[in-house]
Nucleic acid binder design. Structure first.
Lengths: 239, 239
DNA sequence: CTCTCTTGTTACAATTCGAAAGAATTAGGC
DNA sequence: GCCTAATTCTTTCGAATTGTAACAAGAGAG
């Protein structure tokens, strides 16, 4: 089979200006992509007989071919995501480019960081359901798997948590080390403006604390700020 | 049975400015989409318990919630394409928006025609992905053949399933690892807004679970999220 | 130190869900 | 048309979760 399969996503760059090619290639390689550059549409099309890139960056306004026609053919015949790069900034240009099958349209001058971000967005959707849903946060010696509704301690112990508990936990993990007021919580957790609800929140937090094995006298993760709200200590990294 | 299923793609619009909502809604309806508008994140999130839009247009800078956190959750939990609309035009803003899971980022002020074109581009890609005409799904150690109404285990054992069971199973396999609310199910399975249907859904799932050989105390594939809905764990590949 | 207000915890009630059993509906054979 | 079988819905009761109420504990003001 393939001697050493390159697992990086493959981005084909088609642009007639050498500086742009180089800048894009550099930025994309740095971002972890494999790139191949082409100056002319004929070269590029020849390459398509050998390789199938995951993303095509196409500069409109190439010298040897009408770029839009090329985009249209690419859209129909290749499964790659197509991103147009163009100096033409009119809305009408963008609309026709997208209508002809492009997946995105970036206007020159552009920032390489945005190009990288947009390519990633395309690839993410492309591979879709398969490896998505890594909805997991790590903190202290826990890993919270929101897709499976369980907490896993570093020693392997599994503690399931309920939906209500998960809502609170997620809120904390989304803004760690920041004060979260009671009012904010109720707003976030779908509490209507009712007043009688406020104690339910306490119970939810209480139950969450016990599941996390907090010491009631000295909570290390969910800290109460008397009269203000709660704060989640602990370094959180989402995976 | 279903009164008249609306085949148009469904676009949810979340923006706090009434004029923008109206402009977008008008333009999109004219372009052949079904739209629903929400002024606040809480309203919007409530609606997600009932319906599953194909595209979400989200204005950052909503008054009642951190928009980016909402985008992040949407990206993880809903299969919809997410398009951010924002007045913040810095490259860094766009990059973070896209990194958090948005599929596109449109800067205000915008032309409705471009919004339409970008939505179409998203739907096009999404559909080609979901338009696998295959009718067999593999998961765990099962293969579900929807054309023959049978489940085949890896050891060759065959278990037939009924139409009603198949509807539920298909719904699960089409969005695995994602919370599916009861309301969404009834919507999808042609249940009118009737209330008496409640338990029928349970029975369908119960039977499906036994056919899949689930342990009632510890279901590994179809998990119940109390008060929220169901979630199908397990990696699904359609052939 | 005491009094008051806020928060934590426990017990209980209400809601939601699962599974079994019976009833209604549908489909097909004779 | 009538009977049988399969499918699906409804009913029902037990189990799990979540909200509410009551009370205990703790923080802050004086």
């Amino acid at each position: 089979m393939t001697p050493s399969p390159d697992l990086r996503a493959h981005v084909a760059i088609l642009d007639d200006e050498p500086e742009i090619r180089q800048m894009l290639s550099l930025a994309l390689e740095e971002a972890g992509f494999r790139t191949s550059c082409y100056a002319r549409a004929t070269e590029f099309e020849a390459s398509l007989k050998r390789t199938t890139p995951d993303v095509c960056l196409v500069d409109l306004g190439l010298p040897d071919r009408d770029g839009l026609a090329l985009v249209h053919r690419l859209a129909l015949e290749s499964g790659a995501a197509i991103i147009i790069i163009s100096g033409r900034a009119q809305v009408q240009d963008r609309v026709t480019g997208l209508e002809l099958g492009a997946d995105d349209y970036i206007i020159k001058p552009f920032d390489p960081a945005e190009v990288v971000a947009r390519i990633r967005a395309r690839l993410r959707k492309g591979r879709s359901d398969a490896d998505r849903s890594a909805d997991t946060a790590h903190f202290a010696d826990w890993a919270a798997h929101f897709d499976r509704y369980i907490l896993v301690r570093s020693n392997g112990e599994e503690v399931p948590f309920s939906h209500a508990e998960g809502e609170v936990l997620r809120l904390f993990l989304e803004s760690p080390k920041r004060l979260i007021s009671r009012a904010q919580m109720q707003e976030s957790l779908g509490g209507a403006a009712g007043e009688s609800f406020d104690r339910a929140m306490d119970v939810r937090i209480s139950r969450l604390r016990t599941k996390l094995g907090e010491d009631p006298k000295n909570p290390r993760l969910i800290k109460t700020i008397y009269g203000a709200g709660y704060i989640f200590l602990g370094d959180v990294t989402w995976v």
